[in-house]
Design a protein around this nucleic acid. Sequence first.
DNA 1: TGTTTATGACTGAACGTTCGGTCAAAAGTA
DNA 2: TACTTTTGACCGAACGTTCAGTCATAAACA
Lengths: 202, 202
Amino acid sequence: MPRSPKQLEEHRKQKKKLIMDVALELFAKGGFHATSISQITRKAGISKGLIYNYFSSKQDMLEEITETAYNEVYKNFDLDKDGVLTNEEFIFFIKETFRIVRENMSFWQLYFALMVQPGIQESFSEKYQEKSKPILNQIYAFLQKNGSTDPEGDLFVLSSLVEGAILYLVVAPDIFPSGKMEDKILQACFRLISTPEAPPKN
Amino acid sequence: MPRSPKQLEEHRKQKKKLIMDVALELFAKGGFHATSISQITRKAGISKGLIYNYFSSKQDMLEEITETAYNEVYKNFDLDKDGVLTNEEFIFFIKETFRIVRENMSFWQLYFALMVQPGIQESFSEKYQEKSKPILNQIYAFLQKNGSTDPEGDLFVLSSLVEGAILYLVVAPDIFPSGKMEDKILQACFRLISTPEAPPKN
DNA sequence: TGTTTATGACTGAACGTTCGGTCAAAAGTA
DNA sequence: TACTTTTGACCGAACGTTCAGTCATAAACA
């Protein structure tokens, strides 16, 4: 249809993105199995067959969507890796987390669905753990630096708190007064990481 | 006539429970839409038709399962209602929560799936909120008693922490060293509810 | 003309659901 | 006791429907 090979590739890229965006939204809202190819094509304004010019199967589509989405997510987490996190960087990290979740609600909805029901995408949990490991390691080091005697356990507690809050944000975004709650979670984090002897001045 | 009505009813009750147990497990593991009636009947050792002597539809089955399961869950939460929670009762409450989750893993897996994807069971989230409201109210009062200046916000933070931990417990039960982590969560709760001026002796 | 995107009617498999019918067991009858 | 009647749990083939995926064809460029 278009002209040069360059333009061609560009066009394919855009079409693929359109399909993936629509599919992600429908998968997130209704679930993978409950969403039909026809629904996707209807909403994307394309034909059924075209899907299979871009993806080899519905399953493949899901995998490409999750792969792309969490690459998108994690490329935003480039705190300088060399040193251990400062307090400011930790605050930034938490705020970034909430910002990213708020801007990719559909993905995070799908994320929880795939976490809870691993049968839908076999390797999702493992892949995700792998991707998030460097970040968790930084938090781990941050906890050690802050005098934690059980950084593993404290990391778990912190993760629970943040993941729980994200779950609320995703499940009930209109109940969640996000500005205030972000601050509350941040405060709670500092309460949890500070050693009992020396409470933080923050 | 044939069997006595008493015997009959008892038998029906048991059969229904068998079907519901099997279905709950499969729904939890594989998801509602991905689980077929045939799978359920195969695992329960019954015929396809029998399902429809006990339930009017697959959807109805899901609704009866969730209704029964969370009645089961909440009947165990009978702390004496009159007064405000003591510290000991609060500790008991958290420990009970984890115990109940550990003993009903399948339900809680399904719970998260239905929370994240409300399309599967329309009224689930609302029904669940209604059931859990009295408990949350008790915690709310407990937070007020403990000097919280923002019990609403603190309740949210506490809920996030506990729900996040439960999510971990459900998603990765073998990674979660449950004994230790329960204690950690409990400690974290007390850190969060204590006023900054007067840290708890616990 | 040759190449590639795009279409949508089509297919076979699998799904939830239905229904005519079977059968073990209890109650009635003698 | 032995035979008949009556019940409802139970079965599984078959139904209509929906699904993911296919393919012959057309349209739009080069």
